[in-house]
Design a protein around this nucleic acid. Structure first.
Lengths: 203, 203
DNA sequence: CAACTAAAGTTAACGCTGTTAAGATTGCCT
DNA sequence: AGGCAATCTTAACAGCGTTAACTTTAGTTG
């Protein structure tokens, strides 16, 4: 007697279709870009009928929100991985490098995440999934950890939005090909971002 | 005998359909957002058949590129208007304020312009319409005009991408509602952006 | 263990989309 | 006056998101 696991010839009851759909969606996004990311295509790739996803997501928007949540977890992991074990300025630089690296390694996913009107990710209660603020929270923690001795006293509150906006902007300009590290004499992204962070912190 | 101007009862030869389509597209974008911006809707609003736009644009992508070009002209004007007659730091701050103001006044258009993969705006020869670099060029001129006395000598080259990325990021965070001037104790966008620019320049 | 139910899948259809093909109308040039 | 190229028309195509109605299955319950 079969248990609750996926099986081939069995058309009904996939096992964990919800998770499978998110995974397929990310695969399509990374290999063929957002234009190829259709509901029917995702279902086809998951081996189910075109209407099956609607048992798990009430709309495409909902599925894309779940994709963004998944991507945001990776994103946070990428930042944390680069900052792990470091202190102060190096911690902050690590976060920034992890941020940019994620954008460059997963451009379509990052674009989806960063270009999505916030209103489209609100749940039924009108709340934004809390994970979506993790990047900002990390930036705040990085700034709190960094000794920003050159900064004026009164405007310290501006550090966070500036840092966030800056690294977000740099990520976008890089993945759109509008700037590149080489343009400014750097061999790789890490060197480039490290210089930017140092510059931002007035070192 | 009728001349080459638009006329009502005459179904053929609109007059300047190309320009009309761009205008209608921008109207729809600003009033109802990108989701409502379909080829058929644009044609309907312009009073022509669904296939008529294809005499002037070979695809929707092409029409949207033209919309972006138009928007980019406005965008440059908005920056220049705010910087006009000013010098040095005030000139730079004016550019930044004009940038953010444009984004807030035309959020859907700005989003279209800024989230469009660069590859989709290349012409047949693979060139980006030169207008798309105007924002960056303005920023460069603003930085050249500003006395950045606190900046280190070796990394001066980084000023431009940093300034560009920063104001671009701020614009995006503002129109997505992820930050607001009030959060940081400012009454309006101008005050907020002025403080950000000052902060960026280490004043 | 048979019967019921809720969950999770199916097929089929709706109106919409971008786009193309084929034909009609028009202004302009000779 | 006639022809041509540009610009418009209608009609059709496949693919899209989504819904409705139905079928299969897993698990619970008497």
């Amino acid at each position: 007697m079969r248990i609750n696991q996926t099986k081939g010839t069995d058309h009904y009851h996939h096992g964990d279709l919800r998770r499978a759909l998110i995974g397929r969606a990310i695969n399509i996004l990374e290999s063929e870009g957002e234009a190829a990311l259709t509901m029917r295509r995702i279902a086809r790739d998951a081996g189910v009928s075109q209407a099956a996803p609607y048992s798990h997501f009430k709309s495409k928007k909902d599925l894309l929100t779940a994709v963004c949540v998944e991507g945001t977890v990776w994103f946070g992991d990428s930042m944390k991985a680069r900052a792990a074990g470091k202190k102060g300025l190096e911690y902050l630089a690590g976060l920034a490098i992890g941020h940019v690296e994620f954008a460059l390694e997963h451009p379509a996913l990052f674009r989806l995440m960063s270009t999505r009107p916030i209103s489209q990710s609100l749940d039924a209660q009108g709340n934004l999934p809390e994970i979506f603020n993790e990047g900002y929270q990390l930036m705040l923690s990085g700034l709190a950890a960094a000794p920003l001795k050159h900064f004026g006293s009164g405007e310290r509150q501006l550090d966070a939005p500036i840092a966030w906006a800056q690294i977000y902007g740099i990520s976008n300009l890089l993945i759109e090909g509008r700037i590149s590290p080489e343009t400014f004499g750097f061999d790789n992204v890490e060197q480039f971002v490290r210089a930017l962070v140092g510059h931002f912190l007035h070192l």
